[in-house]
Design a protein around this nucleic acid. Sequence first.
DNA 1: ATGGCTGGTAGAACCAGA
Length: 260
Amino acid sequence: MKIASWNINSVRARLDIVEQFLAAERPDVLCLQETKVVDDIFPAEMFQRLGYVHRVLNGQRMHHGVAILSRVPLTDHGRHDWQDNGEARHVGVRLPNGVRLENVYIPAGGDVPDRTINPKFGQKLDFLERMTRWSADLREPTLIVGDFNVAPLECDVWSHKALLDVVSHTPIEVEALGRLQASHDWVDLGRRFIPAPARNYTWWSYRAKDWTANDRGRRLDHMWASPEVAATAVAHTVHEPCRSWLKPSDHVPLVTEFAA
DNA sequence: ATGGCTGGTAGAACCAGA
């Protein structure tokens, strides 16, 4: 079973490169974040044509939005609103092997890392706290993937020092993510297969003329597994070349292959 | 020089991303 996750920053703007990725990589399941489209007009045709005939959508107009496209049947669809404000940031399913797959788009959190002057930062922390309460009660084998919008380790950003006060790498977010991880003993598959302190970025800003020139990346996208699910993981890849494809997303896809 | 760009939606010298 091969599972992929990709923040594509608009599914309609990215159809060609998503097709290129699916044709080359052939994951069984693809989790998308930031689809930016309501479910009624989700561009399903390309996915159907490539065999991804099962889909579970949670989209909204303009912003956010998540989707799961699959070649294998999906059951027990569910949604959490961990921000408690109606935004489409999660969709979950059960895979044929019984494992739960949760696809999440954690809020970016705005510019200022202080909830008293930036409500979006507070919403991000509240989202993580509600996820932690859910996770602490979780008793089934689960894989949680997506854009977490937090780069937890010093080696997950191009400069730990320069980014300490930049939302995505502040100690308060890193600690909140740490509590989430501890609540279920989640295994960080990215770091299991590419151990720290190896470079392992998944996002590079659009604003650099040449994203490779200074390599100012961050590891914002993650795949976490329950310990018993992590034990079945056999390979994990971050598809960095996708950042150079025509009209790229600012994030690249992650793929994990499981024995079962 | 981590905001320098990008997408959606409007029809904006807009908003949001991270």
